[in-house]
Amino acid sequence: MDKFDLLIVGVGGQGVILASDIIGKAAVQEGLPVRSAETHGMAQRGGAVENHVRIGCKYGSLIPAGGADCLMSMEPLEALRFAKYLNTKGLAVINTEKIVPVTVNLGKVPYPELDTIRDTMKGLCAEVKMEDYTALAKKAGAVQALNVVMIGAVSKYLPISQETLKEVIAKSVPPKTVAVNLKAFDLGREA
């Protein structure tokens, strides 16, 4: 059985839960067992959020530190925050569009340079892909499609066919946005 531990992180409100939902449903559709863990409640309100998705797993939903095959980060800073979950042989797919935390705006701590984030991440895992996926979402037609762009970007590595993923995307997003989201998936996959 194909096992794949994927950690999806970002900021509350970015659509992290929908992203993990699409991948989870696609796994079930392909007959793979799947476990995932979500962030709800207080932590969600604009805070750092983490969703664990364990494909081919029959145990608990939390990925052990050092166990993730892939870290999909919808915001650059959050990749660093959750980097401990990545396997040294793993892959990090990181969006470069920043969401500046209030602690930075108030001048308490500077936001690290993107190059610093890239270099740090490169020292922690086998491969780092950093792209402006937000720009691709805009190109597809809606900034809200960022989560689907990034599913496209990680889809090449998942033990799930892209046809199944696209089928589930079409069923999971609002009907009016299906075309935009399918385009978003393709742009992410090609990037």
Binding site: A43, R45, L77, R81, P101, V102, K108, V109, P110
Partner: peptide
């Protein structure tokens, strides 16, 4: 690492 606490 800048903290990102939940906020209103």
């Amino acid at each position: 690492l800048p903290a990102r606490p939940p906020a209103m």
